[in-house]
Amino acid sequence: MKKKSFKTKVLTLSAVITVSATTVVFAHGGAMGVIKERMDLMSAIGKNMKSVAAMVKGEVKFDPAAIESSAKSIAEHSTKVNDLFPKGSLDKPTEALPAIWEDWDRFTQLSKSLETETNKLAEVAASGDKRAVMMQFAKTGKICSTCHTDFRLKKD
């Protein structure tokens, strides 16, 4: 890997701190075991997307290095998705749908695409091409939406 300048490191570090310091509370009270684990995993993915979105929207300064590290983190998380959905794991308060196991191939395709597209996001971020980052961010978001549309249902 290319050696990063001190400034980039500081920026990345501060981005990481900002992300973890932002208290994002998702409603998953009472979850246990694998359900809790996957909710935590998804929340971590969500936090990374949120920090990238803030730059894409121009709310905070566009920082390619921070985007690259968020994207890599999502890619890494996405490799763990399938294992956290053992067949029939539908204990409360899960929002997962039984359709996951009826269409397991598609579900796993989506988690795989998430890995592929976020790795691409990391690549385009490294190139510093702002426009390409925006396009790739939108592409990544489509995968989140598709999986949440077909395999997740909000409940009380």
């Binding site: 998702f26 969500g46 949120k50 949440h148 077909d150």
Partner: peptide, 17 residues
């Protein structure tokens, strides 16, 4: 437009459509 909430979650279910 994107489906992304301010928390970084993505709208799904029937709203996804």
């Amino acid at each position: 437009q994107m489906g992304m909430t301010p928390k970084g979650d993505f709208l799904g279910g029937s709203m996804g459509k």
